[in-house]
Nucleic acid binder design. Structure first.
Lengths: 137, 137
DNA sequence: CTGTATCCTGCCGGATACTG
DNA sequence: CAGTATCCGGCAGGATACAG
């Protein structure tokens, strides 16, 4: 697909993530964001409660997990079900659309994980060629 | 796949993105980051020079594009070829691994773009149920 | 044209404390 | 347990200038 073809098909689509103001860019950022991608993938295997999710996604703070879940719920990817019991119990799960997105995300993650040896090799070569210019330590 | 199965398979893998210190998490963030995902996808169709890329990825600054390209080059996803001419000419393209990653990203992006009507509907319903609590305007 | 260097600001996101 | 509320430091990232 060349540039002309891409532009033409982009013009025919209602949503183009390459355009600055398109709302799809915001959704893509929720999905691919630092915590969004891990949260969606973690929920793909099975629904979970809040603290269970915190344990699955190592390193996420309460605040960020809460924000992430709200954004994904608002976008219709996550379903939230609160039970008015005591102690309170809230279950999070993926909507059908959320599962579709998470499936693609999972494929991407597994690809990256499986190719990490290549990535680390490339980093070594890059750093070796540029001594003393540490990038992202 | 249940939780136990996931944990077991994770233990058997050398790289687990769900673990806080795993280097694969950093690479995943380069790939899925705000500019990384758009840059990789933009390069998937064809290689490009610096300013051509800036035009494709609407809204990216020189600084962020430069940083993004360096990180992706270091991870072995982007190939940089400088020609010592005057004026200088530098071509960026994807490595084979970069193309694999970009292919998955493209699938994800097209899924999100195609489902934006559902997402916008979900947002409307969410905001309607919580008047006056605007989230991420 | 292809970038670095520098400055500056907003907000991301962690820590902590508190509520129901 | 399941979250909000608040504070605040660091850095992401934009604007600008400048170099090769």
């Amino acid at each position: 697909m060349d540039e002309i073809t891409r532009r033409e098909s982009a013009e025919s689509l209602p949503f183009d993530v390459f355009s600055r103001q398109c709302p799809s860019r915001g959704t893509l950022e929720h999905v691919t964001g630092r915590w969004g991608s891990l949260t969606l993938t973690a929920l793909h295997e099975s629904g979970a409660r809040f603290n269970e999710l915190r344990r699955r996604v190592d390193g996420v703070s309460e605040k960020m997990l809460s924000q992430t879940l709200h954004a994904l719920e608002r976008d219709g990817l996550v379903h939230r079900e609160a039970q008015p019991t005591n102690p309170p119990r809230v279950d999070y799960s993926l909507t059908p659309l959320g599962h579709e997105v998470a499936g693609r995300l999972l494929g991407l993650i597994q690809l990256v994980e499986g190719r990490m040896p290549e990535v680390l090799d490339a980093r070594s070569r890059y750093d070796e060629a540029r001594p003393g210019q540490g990038l992202r330590p």
